[in-house]
Structure formats: C-alpha cells, structure tokens
Amino acid sequence: MNVILIAVIVLGAIGLIAALVLYFTSKKFAVKEDPRIGQVNEVLPGANCGGCGFPGCGGMASACVKAADAGSLEGLNCPVGGQPVMEKVAAILGMKVEASAPKLAVVRCNGTCENRPRTVIYDGVKSCRIANTTCMGETACAYGCLGCGDCVNACQFGAIKMNETTGLPEVDTTKCTACGACAKACPRNIIEIRTMKGAKKMGVVVECMNKDKGAVAMKACKAACIACQKCVKVCTFDAIHVENNVAYIDPEKCRNCRKCEQECPKKVIHAINMPALKPKPAPEAAATAAKPAAAPVKPTSPEAPKAPAAPKTEA
C-alpha cells in the first residue's frame, strides 16, 4: 500500500512541478505574434518556393500583414497560388487586391542544334554559370542558351524540361508559376518572366537575345534576330522596338495580333499558347485573338528598359 502511495505522490509531484515550470516559461518567454500571420500562412500554398521574393511562405505571410497595416497589398503576389490565393489573403486582412496579370517564364532563344551549328566542344561542369565563364558556349552565339540546364534544376515545379533534340529548355505553361527562379538561374538572362494575356496566358515573344550585327548573328544561328525592322514596321500598336540589334515586343502594348510573327523573315517571333498560324494571312484569326486580349488587363511591366526582341525559326 505504502509503495503505491509513494509512487503516486512522487509522480504527482513531478507532474505538478513540470506543469508549473512549463506554465511559467511559456508565459515568460511567449513570443507575441500577430494571429493574422498564422491565418495568412494557412491559405498560402506552403511550397516555400521563394517566388514572391520572401524567404518561404512564412516570410510572405508576415510581409502581407505588415503591408496591410501600412495600407496596401500592392506589389505582393504569390506566383504559385495566383489571384485566388491573394484574394483569400486580402479577405483575411480586410483588404482588396487588384487583379494582377498572369505571367509566364519565356525562353528567349531559339538556337536549336539545327539552327546553331556547334563550333567547339565544351568539356566542363554541366552548369550554365560555369560554361558562361569558360567561353561564349558551344556555338558562335554569345547571347544564346548554353543548354546545361541550370533553369531546369532551379525549377521547383517541374515546369521546365530540356528538349533533347533542340537542346533548349521548354516551359510547360500549365505548370509554370512564374516564380522567377529560372530567370535568376540563367546567367544570360534569356528567360523572361513575361506578362501574358487572358486565362490562356497568351503572348507573342521575340525568341532571340543576340545583340550582334545582323551578318554576325546570321552566321552564328539560322534563327537569330537580324534587326531587319520588318516587325517594327508591321506593328500597329508601337509595341516592337529594335535596340542593340535585337527586337523586343513590349507585352503591355502588344495586342497579340501576330502580324509580326508572319512578317519575320527569320521566324524568330513566336506566339505562346495560341493556335499555329495558317500558312498565309489569317486576319480573322488574328483579330479574334486580339479581341479578348484587349480586355482590361493591367500588367506590371517586367524588365522595363529592355526593348529588344528577336526572331526565331520554326513554329
């Protein structure tokens, strides 16, 4: 009997002391956190991709709360969850969020193995960053894709894959969240996080970055922008400009009419998420494509000063 009593008392005492210690420490060392941070964190995707520019979803949540207290959620965007998530966040914080345009990662190089003849063999670490410091790459183009796949490794969502035949990365537009990790990983800034139009995320892009003069670029790559200005002339919206020997389509001004795509002699301008053009003029198709795009979409401009874009081969 005694034994049982002692055991009960001892255990009870330990339990009591431990409970007291826990109680006081939790009081003493309590970290006060805005409960809204936890709530916001709940609705965030939890992928911790860093695409928003903050260290993980927790960082984004506290940034949102802070921004809400300051009066506006502007500039904060979860690229993974997109509009629906940001609306939920805004609801928790009693704010309104403005519609942000859909974005996609776009690879601006079309120098496939076929278009860009190989001039040397790169025999080093399979890393674009290291290849970029070694020489201009395996081809004579100092601006094009190096093909070592740093972007593929950077993508957390499996949205970029290397196409073995072309040697270029391809973005799966259904998986891409425009988090920008690939664009950061690319030492040549070939990948652009570009504002697209409509639910289908459509857009027209010059897939070349070659700033060499036309003749030099042509020698290096059959699908290089040669800055012939034809696209500039055909564009009725003043969306295309040639700078540094390469054309660039301003996504804010472009209405996806695809005239430039047809005009480009080097086939450098490509439409994304749009049906292939019929061989010759198809003005109706272009017009219909343009109409929904004209809807009130407010895109945030990506890399404002960059004005060039270039043509690519093949559709």
């Binding site: 080093g124 670490v125 890393s127 960053r129 290291i130 410091t133």
Partner: peptide, 12 residues
C-alpha cells in the same frame, strides 16, 4: 573532380 571550376565561380 572539377574543383577549380566551381571555386572560380564561387570566388567571382
């Protein structure tokens, strides 16, 4: 192992 390739990038 291409040690220097990596180190050079890191150094830069």
């Amino acid at each position: 192992r291409p040690l220097l390739d990596q180190i050079r990038l890191g150094k830069a």
